[in-house]
Design a protein around this nucleic acid. Structure first.
Length: 379
RNA sequence: GCGGCGUUGGUGAAGUGGUUAACACGCUGGUUUGUGGCACCAGUAUGCAUGAGUUCGAUCCUCAUACGCCGCC
């Protein structure tokens, strides 16, 4: 019984886009797919039922956060992550590698060959995370897909450092793969290499040699420009096998998702839909809107005409604006539900466009509407 | 009617005889990409109740007026 099975169904005519299916023990979903982020075993403010209603095919949870609280042993005792959080769909766990990068601001991290020393964001205590420990934790969490523990270097970084880092990530991937022992869980490798084409190629080829169940592109959206990021994706994907699923980590906004799909990405995750929701913003076909803006004060229409999400079916902009201004948590919930649905619908549309070999046309129309009169992104 | 105190932006307020009137909230924009952080950034009183005076210069000193609160007849 394979842990997951990716089936490539079609390749788009003019681009590298792919249409596929990913089968897991907890269900099958179509790709390209957007994956909401549920860091602490919950997509902030959104119930599992609401996730399904928003057509979310898979969610991401985080090894680092669950390791600190409530601890992987407790979750194992509860019967694993699915049972613990009452979510019976596919779950992917991030390895904690990104947290080492994002917590780097506190300058308390120390990356050594063995692993990474850093300080807990909860109580400041000293922590030591290694590739083996990350995989062991993920084994216990019992997610459907585990991620290798990688180093996510900041941007920019010197070529020499990046080379060193890529080699270390490769060694860490190997060490993690050796201790991985959950028969129900797939393990993905991560391609790094920053903006250096030859390092991306090297990282990609070496990672593929280890034969993971799927591959992801890491080290993007860490401060680089859009053109650089798109190049990173192209370089990262170029030598990946066609019969394995590809996941672009941490991306992104609607435009980035389209650009990623065009370059051959199958799965995306991003905190944007839920974070901007809590800050009072919504994705719409006409671009991102800020509900706090005074112009929505008496706007009694839904966030987006024709949207089939729970928020749009029952509530108006004026009401949601009121909730956000009054600091009522229901406002953030409604916006989260809408934003997740917006991105899952975007991937549905992209799948349809791939089916019809009209992806480039779809992108053009989308950009025209989404960016309006604003200048097109520099590329 | 007499006496005392007070009157600073949308709100609560700080403050000084001398370049840009503190801070907070609110308001108006913006940011957010493998989520520590419903967070962060920026803008928001050409004017300090009104009028006159003292002064090189007044929101700050003096006088008058208006309004408010408190006390007395």
């Amino acid at each position: 019984m394979p842990k997951i099975k990716y089936t490539l169904e079609k390749k788009e005519k003019d681009t590298k886009a792919r249409l596929g299916k990913l089968k897991t023990n907890y269900g099958t979903f179509d790709t390209p797919m957007f994956m909401p982020v549920g860091t602490k075993a919950t997509v902030k403010g959104v119930s599992p039922e609401e996730l399904k209603e928003a057509h979310s095919g898979i969610v991401l949870a985080n090894t680092y956060h669950l390791w600190l609280r409530p601890g992987e042993d407790l979750i194992a005792k509860a019967g694993g992550l699915h049972k613990f959080m009452n979510y019976d769909g596919p779950i992917l766990t991030d390895s904690g590698g990104f947290q080492v990068f994002s917590l780097a601001k506190n300058k308390d991290k120390d990356i050594v060959e063995e692993g990474v020393h850093f300080k807990s964001h909860l109580d400041g205590s000293s922590l030591f995370l290694t590739p083996e420990l990350s995989i062991e934790i993920q084994n216990k969490l019992d997610s459907d897909i585990a991620m290798s523990f990688d180093e996510c270097p900041p941007y920019p970084v010197s070529y020499d450092y990046m080379k060193e880092s890529v080699d270390r990530t490769l060694r860490w991937a190997k060490r993690g793969k050796e201790v991985h022992n959950n028969p129900n869980q797939a393990l993905f490798g991560i391609v790094q290499g920053g903006e250096f084409q030859d390092l991306r190629e090297y990282s990609c080829k070496e990672t593929v040699k280890m034969d993971f169940d799927g591959y992801s592109i890491g080290g993007t959206s860490v401060g680089e420009s859009k053109p650089v990021m798109y190049k990173m994706i192209e370089d990262g994907v170029r030598y990946l096998p066609e019969d394995k699923v590809r996941y672009l980590m941490g991306v992104g906004d609607p435009i980035d998702i389209i650009e990623g799909v065009i370059r051959g990405i199958d799965i995306f995750d991003c905190v944007l839909p839920t974070r901007i929701a809590r800050h009072g913003q919504a994705f719409t076909r006409q671009g991102k809107i800020t509900l706090k803006n005074a112009k929505f004060k008496e706007d009694f229409t839904p966030l987006e005409e024709g949207c089939d999400c729970y928020a749009c079916k029952h509530y108006t902009k004026a009401y949601i604006r009121h909730l956000i201004l009054a600091d009522e948590m229901f406002g953030g919930r409604l916006l989260s539900i809408h934003n997740i649905r917006f991105l899952t619908r975007l991937t549905e549309d992209l799948r349809q466009a791939i089916k019809e070999d009209k992806l480039l046309e779809y992108r053009e129309n989308f950009l025209k509407e989404y960016q309006g009169e604003k200048e097109k992104i520099s590329r």
